[in-house]
């Protein structure tokens, strides 16, 4: 099963590269000129044209592009002149750290809130529904700005930019860890809050679907305590659709991270992508898109494995 998933993941990455190849040709202007930028000399344009093989048939060009990309030859940034591979190689761990942590935290928070809503009902349910739908509707970049206003400008307790202070190199031991955590706090809180809203809504629905099932009524009739019914009978069965959601919410969370990274100057792939798009730095845009696709595909594989591990029925049927 995992092998099949890995193959389909590979197909997605290949698809992204193909899409980029053809989009570059659909866009107005000469692709070679786009890739080398407005300041390039005629010789550079000519060299790029040879590299893309624009005089050769499209199929050959496509194969050459794929080959170059697969070998890690992603060109140089038009804006900074640095090799694109080096820029992104330094950036992806920061993105994985931010997205991974907020995925875990937003799931814990969302599951807790959704479960309380489903089991408690009544006014508390209504109140928490209002909270979760509001969180769900909050644009990350706006929530981020508001948090910056409150915690950085008003209360002056948390930094708003970057992943570490300017003096990070001179800090030692715990001070360094504390500095990192303080910089992580606002971007992580923003991304977690907006993710938790959607998760809570979903968990509440999944648990309510299970609460009505006959086996829950039987468990209650047997005199099992409500807490135990909630945990052992309802939650366990509601967990399966929730874990399936994990794979679906990863692209959404990654999308959110793009804005958050841009707002908080978090040194990840999303920030590089946004500034490259604003500067029309095509080699970087292309490579950052590909790296995003790879990260999301890998994350989905992980989610699949986790779901299979949690639901024995799935393992049996897929074998």
């Amino acid at each position: 099963m995992l092998l099949r998933r890995a193959l389909s993941g590979l197909a997605v990455v290949l698809g992204v590269l193909t899409l980029m190849f053809f989009l570059l040709r659909l866009a107005p202007g000469d692709p070679a000129r786009l890739l080398v930028g407005p300041a390039a000399t005629e010789e550079q344009v000519e060299a790029q044209r040879r590299a893309l093989g624009l005089d050769r048939p499209v199929a050959t060009q496509y194969a050459a592009w794929l080959g170059r990309f697969a070998q890690g030859d992603w060109g140089t940034s038009l804006a900074t002149g640095r090799p694109v591979r080096e820029m992104l190689g330094g950036a992806w761990p920061a993105t994985v750290r931010l997205v991974g942590l907020s995925l875990v935290l937003s799931y814990l928070l969302g599951i807790a809130v959704g479960a309380i809503q489903a089991m408690h009902g009544g006014r508390l349910d209504t109140l928490l529904s209002v909270v979760s739908v509001t969180l769900f509707a909050l644009p990350g970049y706006w929530l981020g700005l508001m948090l910056v206003m409150l915690f950085t400008y008003r209360a002056r307790v948390l930094p708003a930019f970057g992943a570490a202070g300017l003096d990070a190199d001179f800090l030692t031991g715990w001070e360094r860890v504390a500095d990192r955590l303080r910089h992580l706090a606002l971007p992580l809180a923003t991304l977690t809050l907006i993710g938790a809203g959607g998760t809570a809504r979903y968990v509440r629905g999944a648990m309510l679907d299970v609460v009505g099932a006959p086996f829950v009524a039987i468990a209650r009739a047997k005199g099992i305590t409500p807490m135990r019914v909630a945990l052992r009978h309802v939650f366990r069965n509601a967990l399966i659709p929730v874990l399936t959601l994990l794979g679906l919410s990863l692209p959404a969370l990654f999308s959110g991270a793009v804005f958050i990274e841009a707002i908080f100057a978090w040194p990840g792939v999303g920030r590089i992508l946004v500034s490259a798009v604003q500067a029309r730095d095509y080699p970087v845009v292309m490579a950052a898109t590909a790296v995003s696709a790879v990260l999301v595909v890998l994350g989905n594989l992980l989610a699949e494995a986790l779901t299979a591990w949690a639901d024995p029925r799935l393992r049996e049927s897929e074998r």
Binding site: M20, L23, A252, F254, S255, G256, L273, V274, A293, V296
Partner: peptide, 17 residues
Amino acid sequence: FSLALPRVVLLLLLASL
């Protein structure tokens, strides 16, 4: 395939061209 991609990344790619 389209569902597996982060929508914002696609949006940015298209908006850049």
